[in-house]
């Protein structure tokens, strides 16, 4: 993946439209999914995806100085999306979903022991809702998109130390639960202004 990105980066820097289309195919899903964790306003996500790839293309001469394409794409994307959300001033609701693993076994368990399951779900929901939005986003970047701390810090415009603390605090909270179920978290940002991001 990383080596492939290196090749793509150089090809795009030399003006290859083909490499550019590969980059798009490679990352459009990742960006969309990331955006969708933050907001359900897909038109804003689409605008930001567009902006990010135009930024890449228009600045392709400087692409070779970028260390990680993935981190760069996500950083630009997040900045653009935050900006779009802010200008839209649309407050999306914080929403936490906790679901049981959708295997046959867990469905069976739900039926047999629905009271216990829902009780546990409730506890999970409670714990997760105590996580801040930033904590949830950090978990997403670190555990879902497998970014390094360094890259995730850049994407979220935080220091690596702050980022580590966010993860650690989140893990401490979650540990208190013995998790037989899978936690599904979808974090919507209550308000982008809370992020205190300056543009």
């Amino acid at each position: 993946m990383v080596e492939k990105d290196e090749v793509i980066k150089l090809e795009i820097a030399h003006g290859s439209e083909y490499a550019f289309s590969i980059l798009y195919d490679e990352y459009v899903n990742l960006l969309f999914n990331y955006g969708r964790q933050i907001t359900d306003q897909e038109h804003l996500i689409e605008d930001s995806i567009q902006e990010v790839f135009l930024t890449i293309w228009n600045g392709r001469q400087n692409l070779e100085y970028i260390r990680s394409l993935k981190a760069y794409l996500m950083t630009c994307f997040r900045r653009s999306l935050m900006h779009n959300l802010k200008s839209e001033k649309r407050r999306s609701l914080f929403q936490v979903d906790i679901m049981t693993k959708t295997t046959e076994a867990s469905i069976e368990m739900t039926i047999v022991d629905s009271e216990a399951v829902s009780d546990r779900n409730l506890k999970l929901k409670e714990a997760v809702s105590k996580l801040g939005k930033r904590q949830q986003e950090v978990l997403f970047l670190i555990y879902h998109d497998s970014l390094t701390y360094e890259d995730a810090a850049k994407v979220m415009n935080l220091s690596t130390k702050t980022l580590y603390n966010l993860v650690y605090e989140a893990m401490k909270k979650l540990k208190s639960l013995l998790l037989k179920n899978v936690i599904f978290i979808s974090f919507y940002l209550l308000s982008v202004i809370d992020y205190k991001i300056k543009f």
Partner: peptide
Amino acid sequence: ISDIRFNYYAIGDHAKQRIWTAI
């Protein structure tokens, strides 16, 4: 770690094509 799961949202083919065309 493995219990932390996020919903996965896939982009639709139409949206994917629409954005690419706009780009």
